[in-house]
Design a protein around this nucleic acid. Structure first.
Lengths: 245, 245
DNA sequence: TCAAAAGTGTTTGGGTTACACCCATGA
DNA sequence: TCATGGGTGTAACCCAAACACTTTTGA
């Protein structure tokens, strides 16, 4: 113990980029800060880590206190520790991102609670964030873009029953590219990750789409084996994602 | 400041997995610990982060004090913060790995200095390490395996002039697979990342191999554009790397 | 009947894969 | 002359890519 007391100690936080998807846009949950610095600015949710709390536990706590959700996809991304990143003194932050279904979130919202201080923002419309939160957001988004190529994590963002078009636009939103409908369907269906429910969309002003469910067991198999998902149309398309022409 | 004083503070370290390659094996530089806990055990090199020191700076400091090398490939991997990972109290560690040329290291060694307390170990032969260093090592190695597939970082581990066979066995060592000689050469040469020097190996008991140099400019181009390296023979071979059969 | 999205097959081309023999050198 | 690793080309196959029309519903 004496050993450790010789050394500099820093307070540290976990910041959590919470992604959601609304059939249109990839969104991020921000909170309006209730205290200085940057009071009343929109920022990434994050808390200080407690003495007896593991990092993952802290990240899950942020998520649960904010959304009421448990057992959510959560991944550590990077630690940001520039000495001057916090104006009040050194604070090291460990950045996580999580993927939630917006419908679950809305369902869980207690009226009049934190609702007024949180809001979903389209990723493409978020401009400047306080601290180094823009860097953190960018790092987490890039990680998500990579992850989605080799692990079928996209399903975490969709409602339990979804159409192939929803799935496609999710991938298009995350990767910021356009995919060919026929090729996309061929590829996804060939992976045997979807269960056709025999149900259909209702109340839409066009031919109703088949609803699919995600095959959880097969998914776990994939996850545990670290299988490479390798979304089709990758060669050329990925060059676009990476900004290589 | 008052704000920050309310919160728990922890000491921080950076741990650095230093990889090297010796034409045979992928190796890791370990140090024999000079103090408790785990005195005289081999462990990953790591230092406490100072109050006015950025994390990357600290990681580079570890590297330089140990090897005398600067401007080395360095990448942050993951932060390990379990409350009980250090027997003397909570210490959070940010794990990095770096890639160095063993020849540079040897050249820089001051006789009688730290030489007696550091040594290269073949990755495959490292068994139990103190603290959670085995987890850290594993995480860094897995990151290296991924990195090497989409960025030509392998060259950081080779001497300035090298043969195609050396390059191939480097990839085989990192990915732990066998590659086809003809296909590998075709692929690598087609990337236009190598400069043929017109020089040859000397003193070998077989046909001497051409020496190549790495095209630094093209490399930087690739890096900045995030180009996907995509080592050939990937589909089937990568399945092996991922343990998926 | 119109708009809007769902759904569906085939062809083509490029890249991965598999594979075997001769060459140059030192011992 | 022998052992050792260096060096080279081609054919088969598979999969990504490109592409257009019919179907079903609500308005």
């Amino acid at each position: 113990m004496a050993l450790l007391n010789k050394h500099f100690r820093s307070p540290f936080t976990v910041d959590n980029v919470i992604f959601g998807f609304d059939d249109e846009d990839l969104k991020v949950l921000l909170i309006k800060r209730g205290e200085d610095p940057f009071e009343n600015k929109w920022a990434l949710p994050g808390y200080f880590v407690k003495e007896l709390e593991d990092l993952d536990t802290a990240a899950n706590r942020v998520l649960e206190e904010l959304t009421g959700l448990q057992n959510v996809y959560l991944e550590q991304v990077q630690t940001f520790g520039k000495t001057n990143r916090h104006p009040s003194g050194r604070v090291i932050t460990i950045a996580y991102y999580s993927l939630i279904k917006i419908s679950d979130f809305t369902k869980n919202l207690k009226p009049g609670s934190i609702a007024q201080t949180t809001a979903w923002f389209s990723l493409s419309k978020i401009q400047h964030l306080p601290f180094d939160h823009s860097d953190i957001l960018q790092a987490c988004f890039q990680r998500l873009q990579k992850r989605v190529r080799n692990q079928p994590v996209g399903f975490e963002l969709l409602p339990p029953k979804f159409t192939l078009s929803q799935l496609q636009s999710l991938y298009e939103a995350i990767l910021n590219i356009e995919l060919d409908k026929r090729n996309f369907r061929k590829k996804i269906l060939s992976m045997d990750l979807l269960i056709e429910l025999g149900e259909y969309q209702e109340g839409v002003a066009h031919r109703p789409a088949k609803l699919y469910e995600f095959d959880k067991n097969r998914y776990k198999e994939f996850l545990s084996k670290g299988y490479v998902f390798d979304l089709s149309e990758s060669k050329k398309q990925m060059a676009k994602v990476n900004g290589y022409h």
